[in-house]
Amino acid sequence: MNAAATTEHTHCLRCRRVLRSARSVAAGYGPTCQRKVREAAKAEVVSQYKAHLVAKAEELIEQGGIIALRGHRIFQVVASNGTDTYKAAPQGCTCAAGLKGKHVCYHRIAAHILSLAA
């Protein structure tokens, strides 16, 4: 197995359906789920949070660094270092910034976007 194949997803990261097209496999989302995620990000979330954090959250989603664990309420998120993982929800996150609660982290924003796309 080569390095490119390890980053591809054969099931949609949002709804867990089998992905059939090469474009969907590379993105990690089917066309309907990808559209729903984009619409959710544009609608409510963009106005609530800082633009640079929303951009980081969208990048996290596009790279497949967030996966739903229980429906669309709790998510597992890969940290920016690529090895640590956190649990995130629209209400909170287990990362250092999320535990302090002083600022909203981009993991939480990504969880918010995906929960709206449900």
Score class of each variant (00 low, 15 high):
S24I: 06
A22W: 09
H72W: 13
R73K: 13
S24A: 13
V77D: 01
G30S: 07
G30T: 06
A57C: 01
L60N: 01
R73C: 11
Q63R: 10
K42N: 10
C15R: 06
E58I: 00
H52W: 00
E62Y: 11
S47G: 04
L19H: 02
K87A: 12
T85I: 11
L13E: 09
V45E: 00
V37D: 10
L69T: 11
I61R: 00
H52N: 03
T7A: 15
H11N: 13
E59D: 15
A27W: 02
Y29A: 04
V45M: 00
K36G: 07
G64C: 02
Y86D: 05
L19R: 01
A27I: 14
S80I: 06
A57I: 00
R70A: 14
E62A: 15
V46D: 01
I66P: 01
K36F: 11
I61F: 02
K42C: 08
E59M: 14
P31N: 12
V18Q: 14
V45C: 00
H52D: 00
I74M: 05
E44T: 09
E39R: 12
N81G: 09
C15D: 07
Y49K: 00
K87H: 13
R38C: 09
G30I: 14
T7L: 15
G64P: 04
V77R: 03
A22I: 09
S24K: 03
E8L: 15
H11Y: 14
E59K: 14
E44I: 05
R23K: 10
G28Y: 05
I74C: 09
H72F: 11
V25E: 08
L53F: 02
V54P: 04
A40I: 02
R14Q: 11
E44L: 06
A55I: 03
L19P: 04
G30C: 15
G65K: 02
H72M: 10
V78M: 04
T7D: 13
E58Q: 04
H72E: 10
A27N: 11
E39G: 08
G65R: 02
S24F: 05
G65W: 06
Q63D: 09
C15A: 12
H52V: 00
E44P: 02
S21C: 08
A57N: 02
R23C: 05
D84I: 07
V54T: 03
I66A: 06
A79W: 02
V45T: 06
S47M: 00
E59Q: 15
E39S: 14
R35K: 07
H11C: 11
C33T: 02
Y49H: 06
E44C: 07
G28D: 14
